[in-house]
Write a protein that binds this DNA or RNA. Structure first.
Lengths: 119, 119, 119, 119
DNA sequence: GTGGTCTAGACCACC
DNA sequence: GTGGTCTAGACCACA
């Protein structure tokens, strides 16, 4: 997989995992790929994936069972959605509006662009 | 001034300068604050401001006159606006829409949030 | 049964066995649960229990009769008590006192806490 | 420095840092040793110290300023004391009492041992 | 100089 | 097989 280089790889992997959870590809209480598996498939070092999983664990999205692997937590979907929404509304959106104002772009323009791309 | 942690300070200063230009606080062909002045008022290391000015220079927003300081270029406003709009439409907006879809947030929600904040 | 995360499961099982011996639930020269039985009741892998039993055997607390299972040794109680007391006085207690000093906790506080919990 | 091997080195370093804070060797809002410095003096890999500092950062004991190093937080002392006391009372102490009961050791014995060692 | 990220490779305990 | 820790060494961005 390809990674951007303006953001740490391990955080991009975290985003990817969020995506999996939100798309229900990672189901609650089920096993997720092992560190090594994911490392191979993403073509990164296992340590890097480990770091992502550490992060996800600290956010209560996954947990580890010794010698057995990592599992998605009960409530992982809700937890992820809430987390992401919060950061969206509290950070992304405000910056977005600021930039709109600064560049003299109206809501109408945004809506137009949205309709265009979703066609 | 307070800076965020997730973005290099020198780029946050660049953003701030863009802001000044777009708000016409930095007028074309007029002198802008010296590296030292800006460093003092922002409470950062002069090297950091230097780096921001280097960047702005490479983007043709400002230029230096030896011994006299930095000046906003003729056409700085247009240049900045175009630059920012381009990155807005080609990058920010697409990411924004992707995130909206992922988090199940509709355009309506965005418009509502916009109207609410601009009150 | 629930296990803690900061200590290997097999050692937690060992502790549990010590407990049984000291509480006279495992009587000397009598049969103790088979590896499989214990594994089922604790909901762990038989290998894990096997490892605990190996450990107990190496400490002369239990022994195996081929085809008949495991038995508590003659003298298991004394052996366990001595073992545990030794490690308690030589290791646990010193660390405990160090931590008390560091956190400015007096013996009085400890005694108070003890009386409170034993009510 | 010597480390035990029943506990990850990075956590032993964390304990050491707690100790520094509680002994007022690390003063609030002052710089603490850089990752590399501490790594050299403890004879461990910088990554390992980094990990300890990450942990301390997540516990709000220290924070980093880019390119400038790590600093003890305002309130680090209180924060550390509270953290340690909490884990002491909620975990260490209970286990300690359990073991005492199991091994038939009385509070008197503990007090005696304490007086003896503090002479 | 500082923190921070990443890789490669090793070793261990655990299940 | 799994997670977890550690080392060595490299490279980058930042101040």
């Amino acid at each position: 997989m390809e990674f951007k280089d303006n953001k740490p790889i391990y955080l991009q992997i975290v985003d990817l995992c969020f995506h999996k959870v939100l798309k229900r590809e990672w189901k609650e209480e089920e096993r997720v790929p092992s560190v090594r598996e994911l490392a191979v498939s993403l073509e990164v070092n296992p340590n890097t994936v480990m770091r992502s999983y550490d992060y996800l664990q600290s956010e209560d999205i996954i947990y580890s069972k010794r010698g057995m692997g990592y599992f998605a937590r009960q409530g992982a979907y809700e937890q992820t959605l809430e987390l992401q929404r919060k950061s969206f509304y509290e950070t992304d959106l405000l910056e977005f509006f600021n930039k709109m104002n600064l560049l003299n772009i109206s809501v109408k323009d945004i809506v137009a662009a949205y309709n265009k791309q979703s066609k």
